[in-house]
Nucleic acid binder design. Structure first.
Lengths: 230, 230
DNA sequence: TCAAAAGTGTTTTACCTACACCCATGA
DNA sequence: TCATGGGTGTAGGTAAAACACTTTTGA
């Protein structure tokens, strides 16, 4: 009978959590308070427990290191270079999520593994611990790719937003400027935006209409992704 | 200093290898010769060694269990349910590939872990060991999705093929019938097919032109995948 | 001569792209 | 009244979809 080997391999989760704030795309980083890479910036990530599924581990770890709860994350890649962890063989399953920053929501690690958690602009990231820079890059590619064929960007915006805000977000993620009229046509055409009877407030120019994302219609339209004509 | 825990977690690779033969989509299965799941059908898969990267482990494992070498595989998902392996905590990184079956190529396991390896039609799979049915399904979705926006199906065909063969392959993977004229227009339009001066032989009806896949042009066109108009 | 598959074009519709001006608002 | 962004339409091109008949070949 085959028996599992006894070498000390373990696995971890790392999270690439995107947020959008002050016109900038940001990700969540922690300052590590433990070796290895003590005092370095890192993606929120830690070891999976023996009796914990990957998805649940991801939720727990994100919560413990940043205080964020109930974030829907999706797995996107597993990194397994032999020497990616200085203390042994650790492969890591990377998850990503796009979330809404409701103003300056407090980030409070609940373990001492992280000294603090902060939102960091992606265009100016510091050197990261382990292979986390590579993990971030692959995660960024993932959302850039996904946004091109699924309007998932709403997740990053406040509940009510203007079309211009939405466009800016696309421009930041795709790293190019978009045509205003074409962008609006396309977005409205999707049929997943609810126009509100409300307008922007506190701006010193013509106030823009506010929109809401219609999650139900989105689900209907984008659940069946396959397409290849008759 | 943080120390890695000592519980016996390990990881494995499982491979979903697609082939196309006699008008049928098939995957490669092995008959297991070891516990657990001795005598069951399973995806080719085994434990990763301590000093081996995931990608290299995938190559080695596929070779050892089936005799196939130099197959380009891509990772697509990692399965980590707590109880997916009866003997302990084993997460598995799943890889897929699409390959060409040059006639009845011999499959010869080089370890005794697999009693034999065979091509099995996907529409009639037996019960599989572990959570391999789930892994297969996710892999199938992956190629179905990918083929809808990238003409990767060539990998499955013989070097020279007719447009009708190509269309049948698409129909099998997408599970729907396609319009002949539209299909041909679209494929030829991609500009990645070389028309040969050769025709099909040995058929009792009008012989079709043979085509070759132009890998260089394919690479040029499909390396930059992002698109969202100005 | 028949069976079986090869091969071929046109029309309609939808979507993408490019492009420029007037409008509403608060300071 | 001015600066700032909000908001709008049209024309041209490209790709997808629907649809049916003639041609070639070997048996």
């Amino acid at each position: 009978m085959e028996v599992l080997p006894k070498f000390d391999s373990v696995f971890s989760i790392d999270c690439v959590i995107f947020g959008f704030d002050e016109g900038e795309l940001k990700i969540l980083l922690i300052e590590r308070n433990v070796e290895p890479f003590k005092d370095w910036w890192a993606l929120p990530g830690y070891l999976v427990k023996e009796n914990e599924s990957l998805d649940l581990a991801a939720e727990r770890i994100l919560y413990e290191l940043t205080g964020l709860r109930d974030i829907f994350m999706e797995q996107f890649y597993t990194f397994g270079d032999v020497d990616r962890h200085p203390q042994g063989r650790v492969i890591t399953v990377a998850y990503y999520a796009m979330i809404r920053l409701n103003g300056p929501k407090e980030l409070k690690p609940v373990t001492s593994v992280a000294r603090k958690a902060v939102w960091y602009p992606v265009k100016d990231l510091p050197k990261l611990a382990f292979d986390h820079t590579k993990i971030f890059q692959k995660g960024f590619l993932k959302i850039r790719n996904k946004i091109s064929y699924q309007p998932i960007a709403f997740e990053l915006l406040p509940e009510k937003f203007t079309l211009t805000q939405l466009q800016h977000l696309y421009e930041v993620i795709l790293n190019k400027t978009l045509d205003k009229r074409n962008f609006r046509k396309k977005m409205l055409n999707y049929g997943i935006l609810k126009e509100l009877d409300e307008k922007q407030k506190g701006v010193s120019y013509r106030a823009a209409k506010l929109y809401k994302f219609d999650r139900r219609k989105y689900a209907k339209i984008f659940q069946n992704e396959l397409s290849f004509g008759k």
